[in-house]
Design a protein around this nucleic acid. Sequence first.
DNA 1: GGAACCCTACTCGGATACGGCGTGTCCGAGTGGCTTCGG
DNA 2: CCGAAGCCACTCGGACACGCCGTATCCGAGTAGGGTTCC
Lengths: 162, 162
Amino acid sequence: MKFRNQVEWALHCCSLMSSLPEGRYLSTRSLSEFHGVPKEYLGKALQGLSKAGLVLTTLGPSGGYRLAREVGQITFLDIVEAVEGRKSTFQCSEIRANNPCRPANACDDRPCAVARIMWRADEAWRRSLAEVTLADLQDMLAEDLAPDMLKRSFDWLLERAG
Amino acid sequence: MKFRNQVEWALHCCSLMSSLPEGRYLSTRSLSEFHGVPKEYLGKALQGLSKAGLVLTTLGPSGGYRLAREVGQITFLDIVEAVEGRKSTFQCSEIRANNPCRPANACDDRPCAVARIMWRADEAWRRSLAEVTLADLQDMLAEDLAPDMLKRSFDWLLERAG
DNA sequence: GGAACCCTACTCGGATACGGCGTGTCCGAGTGGCTTCGG
DNA sequence: CCGAAGCCACTCGGACACGCCGTATCCGAGTAGGGTTCC
């Protein structure tokens, strides 16, 4: 079980858009050049973000994407679910119903115990991702990276942002 | 991102083997009949458990699988990792290295901030699964299911166990 | 000079091919148990 | 009657096809901006 690489791309794109000034947009072309990934394919990840309402789009020259909410109001879980979907990582196929010893009037009032445990782990994972926002990521990056590099990246995207 | 259904099968098979008396074995044939899943394919999941050292095998008539440790010493994480592998759900492709503004002597002493957050969520998920053992599952099932059905299932597998 | 119009170039979005891994199946190596034969 | 040997049926384990989803790409609908033209 592993994430598709679109998740990573979407997260990094949102990270870039976090420092985008009000009213400016970043195009798929610019984002793909910055990250060195295929433009057309990256577009599908961004479309996922658009469908989920996380980003706003504008057409035409100097068009592109920008975040739809404040950086503190967009969590990692929002982004991951926008790309990967909202379905649980564990799907219970009700295998217990095939038990040959199971009577017809079996008590199915509770979900399968195995599924309950797996879903609980799924919840823990989602909760961990829901606790981190893009604002937190900005803080982490500010602490990790050299200030001059942040500045240059900021200028780079400002130059390309319509 | 979703688990393969082999995970569910493996968990339910381990659940059955949990109540297997000492020295007895359950064959892939019996397990597949009990759960109503393809025998040959279920075998691959059990082979995964075998490779991970979670179960012991015996060949010949009345051969099969049985748990290698006490039910309290086998966690859900053990089983899931035996089937799905131990790799993290998030793979960092070091996309930040493609940043055109990144100098040659970039500071890569720390992993990518995005990856750190995703890995933390991965850890939370694993921790949740590591906290539950097959003994806990047995307790849950004893509380959920009717005692007579447990008894019948127990007799069923005893009849088939070599 | 200013405003309206048109054209162009650039954008996103959905529809369209290719490949890898999960899904499902088959066959061979190996072994424990039953039968049989001899003492 | 008892023990040992041989055979057989049953087991696991790895090697072999099929199908679906992730990956990658292309093309069309639509629009913002700039240039031109007219008033």
